[in-house]
Design a binder for these strands. Sequence first.
DNA 1: AGGCAGTAGACTGTACACAGAAGCCCTTAG
DNA 2: CTAAGGGCTTCTGTGTACAGTCTACTGCCT
Lengths: 230, 230
Amino acid sequence: MSFFTGNAESVDMPRLTRPAPLRQGVYEALLELIVTRALKPGQHLVESDLATRLGISRQPVREALQRLSTEGWVDLRPAQGAFVHTPTEEEADQLLAVRSLLEAESARLAAANVTPEAIARLREICEGGVAALEADEVDAVVAANATLHAAIVELSGNKVLAELAAQVDRRVRWYYTPVARQRGPESWTEHAALIDALAAHDGERAAQIMREHTEHTRRSYHQRPDKEVT
Amino acid sequence: MSFFTGNAESVDMPRLTRPAPLRQGVYEALLELIVTRALKPGQHLVESDLATRLGISRQPVREALQRLSTEGWVDLRPAQGAFVHTPTEEEADQLLAVRSLLEAESARLAAANVTPEAIARLREICEGGVAALEADEVDAVVAANATLHAAIVELSGNKVLAELAAQVDRRVRWYYTPVARQRGPESWTEHAALIDALAAHDGERAAQIMREHTEHTRRSYHQRPDKEVT
DNA sequence: AGGCAGTAGACTGTACACAGAAGCCCTTAG
DNA sequence: CTAAGGGCTTCTGTGTACAGTCTACTGCCT
């Protein structure tokens, strides 16, 4: 009733912190441990062990492992438990092939949807990546790369495609991170060319560049020197 | 030690009936109920209800629902439970687009790998589908269609691609089944042409035919008469 | 009569407990 | 000394119990 209409809805509330399901926290924590190699491929994940470490019961851990299993991060052997998935050469290659397919199509679709604002944002990310590259900050480079690809995929406007691509991309990055250093300058040159094609709304060229780009990644994966390093 | 070396290992056992994890049985049962529309989109799935119906406890049900959630069959709203996913027009279209992409690539790759035996098997499936079509057995037609596509995808030799395509295909069939009747004869004509292309190891033509084929499906989905039926 | 608060019911999220199976080590016989 | 068998430990699979929360209904106040 006051001239100052300060009701509860107008106040900026932090979404009223709901308890946030434990299983999601566990899922994210385990995923982080897997992609950072803290949990090595083939390692046996004991439910009760993880549960006590996290200070919770086995149930949320089980549910998180279920999800990790369906997404291919762990293998759930019946009556034996969960093991961190061991990527094979063949699987990595197939995953890279699928990524190439999905990202190329994303680029093609994105070319039809981009706005000047989107282009500006992409260039910004790209510059951030180049800067990180010159500063030799590997983690930042990888993060910028992921952000850029995610942004392009999102611009495709196809949510199903975006989700699938994100899924595959994460797996690929898991395999690829150890050799991320080798491939740098050319990668970001290609990124710049890709953005140019998108700005010109040239879907075919964007798809072509993206395909070559991911194929280069594929080749650099197979030519990595540390073939058998964990 | 008898002259008849009949030890236990040599006997043809049906894989020694392992207890078969309950969660998988629940998963398959629920998936069947969803795709057959026994569980309608938007319906609230109560854990304890399902558990008592199946004569088990809530745990396996929860785990099955978790998996169904990650695969997009149900939506898991926090503190509210599981609801059968309600497909939107937009999502169906995007899913069909992704299917088109995945299957076209599968066909392209399959063309390089097919053997005469594989071709014979594909033709067999195709003939079975045509026979079912003429006999007006809708379920058999749909099953033959799924089998044929699965066989082609498997011939691609890319397991990751195959798994993704299978996933997407299942979802598409869920949306598409109600209108499967409309599209029949042309569909199997296209199948025959596709097999011809594969037999000729013409990957480009196979991919092209598959793309047109799935695009036809897409169009027939949008032109279906029963737009707002359950 | 309409709206709001209070309350009761129901369902999910989590923890705890027990049975069964798989793997491992130790023992024992050849 | 080697190999096979048995007992033990550990972990998974499943059932049961309890607390927090959301919803819907009912009754009261305006």
